[in-house]
Design a protein around this nucleic acid. Structure first.
Length: 116
DNA sequence: CTGATGACGGTGC
DNA sequence: GGCACCGCCATCA
């Protein structure tokens, strides 16, 4: 119970209104692979203080284990935090992706914008 | 103790 | 954009 605890600890640092990917979390935990992150979340129990719903895959989408009902719950929780979903059910990681507590100011990203 | 299992990411085509 | 292969280690029965 050390690796999983470290992973959970990182997830707990995700601020309100932000989301992080498995790779992001894995990058914050040395020696941890993106799989371990998923495995760690899979091992979480109900009532945990870990905001597992803020963890999504690199596609900016919600990952689910087997039950297709939890994804709706996760999406609902994210929307409740002001997170908006794309038409394809995707999340704009460039906009609300967690950048390690330094997400102040818009990214000088050019191009690749989706005109409304 | 052994064995099986598991919410992914990156790369190549 | 999709799909296939590979890497990785803690947890549970």
């Amino acid at each position: 119970m050390i690796k999983y605890d470290s992973i959970n600890h990182v997830i707990r640092q995700i601020p309100y209104g932000k989301v992080a990917t498995y790779g992001q979390i894995a990058g914050l935990v040395p020696g941890c692979t993106p799989r371990m992150v998923g495995y760690a979340l899979a091992s979480l129990k109900p009532g945990t203080d870990v905001p597992w719903f803020r963890v999504i895959n690199r596609h900016g989408k919600i990952s689910l284990r087997s039950d297709g009902g939890e994804d709706a719950l996760q999406r609902h929780l994210l929307e409740a935090e002001g997170i908006q979903f794309d038409r394809t059910g995707r999340i704009d990681l460039e906009k609300i992706g967690w950048r390690g507590l330094s997400n102040s100011g818009p990214a000088p990203h050019h191009g690749c914008g989706q005109p409304p």
